[in-house]
């Protein structure tokens, strides 16, 4: 069974009037109900990609459909499925939280529904601020208001462009909870983020974009298994001057103080040889203080990918 993707991007390119090419022949599909994280350094093309899908920018080439609707020729149907939380805190300072959220619902062609708006505000812990003017809110609260506005018309797709930039840890965790609830309710979520921890925590799939090119798209777990690595660290009770001969075949590195021996191996585990290493270690007679393994973080994978390309 293959359900039509919620978002289909084919050969998308964008060159600005200045001549700067922000996107180069990007193709991507995003399935219904998944959380897709788009990672990339500043200026990689993340926001341009979102802008074209949402109608804020025009593509130079290629085609985008949302829910099967072309974002140019059938923009009404396509846009009515989308909620967008922009990167910048752009709000109507003088409006109240309730009014601005209701305004967004109307803008997207939905009749007034105060009960639904109140539910959204409650879910985002904004209900106490419903009659407050936006200018009186903190940055974190304004960010929640932007999410409430994006959710006001019950979108099937939610774009979160750097949703937790500049917000504190507590609020970030709160937002993750809301995003998971939305995903559980069937909403497709596309987020761009600088916080790799965020992508690692939430995403089902990850796309890495750099200099306008989509470098890879992979299931998060596959990505971490395929490109990630593991490290075995042996902490010694007494320092040594060099890697013992019996451990030399395994490519150990020694720390500057001689107290740690580090062996890196493939995350898939197929190429590792922990058991023989442990046997060899026993044979060296070294006094081991501690022993541990670590897995690469998404951040290390990302830096490796983008750093290598830059």
């Amino acid at each position: 069974m293959s359900e039509a993707p919620m978002i289909a991007i084919e050969g998308l390119s964008k060159t600005y009037a200045s001549g700067f090419t922000a996107l180069k022949n990007v193709s991507l599909t995003i399935d219904r109900g998944e959380i897709f994280a788009l990672l990339g350094p500043n200026g990689a093309g993340k926001t341009t990609l979102i802008s074209i899908v949402c109608g804020l920018a025009r593509a130079s080439g290629g085609r985008v459909t949302v829910g099967g609707h072309d974002v140019v020729t059938d923009y009404r149907a396509a846009r009515s499925l989308i909620g967008l939380v922009p990167q910048e805190l752009t709000t109507d300072a003088f409006e109240t939280v309730f009014d601005t959220t209701s305004f967004s619902r109307g803008l997207f062609g939905k009749p007034p529904n105060p009960a639904y708006i109140e539910k959204v505000l409650t879910d985002l812990s904004l209900i106490d601020k419903r009659d407050s003017r936006i200018m009186t809110l903190s940055g974190g609260m304004k960010r929640r208001v932007l999410i409430a506005k994006a959710l006001s018309h019950e979108p099937a797709v939610l774009f979160l462009d750097e949703p937790t930039a500049g917000v504190d840890v507590e609020l970030r965790r709160d937002m993750w909870r809301v995003v998971r609830q939305l995903r559980d309710a069937g909403t497709t979520i596309i987020l761009t983020t600088h916080y790799l921890e965020e992508a690692e925590e939430m995403a089902d799939r990850i796309g890495v974009i750099n200099r306008g090119e989509l470098m890879l798209v992979e299931e998060k777990t596959t990505l971490m298994r395929r490109l990630g690595g593991k490290r075995l660290t042996i902490e010694l009770a007494e320092p040594v001057a060099a890697v013992p001969d019996m451990l030399a075949p395994y490519g150990f590195e020694i720390s500057a103080d001689g107290r740690k021996l580090v062996h890196s191996y493939d995350a898939s585990g197929e190429g590792s040889a922990i058991a023989p290493i442990l046997a060899a270690l026993a044979g060296t007679g070294l006094a081991v203080k501690d022993l541990g393994t670590e897995e690469s973080t998404l951040e290390e994978i990302f830096v490796g990918l983008v750093g290598g390309k830059s």
Binding site: A78, L84, L107
Partner: peptide, 12 residues
């Protein structure tokens, strides 16, 4: 102020 994004991304 930048709130034009909402109008441009709406089915209007």
């Amino acid at each position: 102020v930048g709130t034009i994004y909402e109008l441009l991304s709406a089915p209007v």
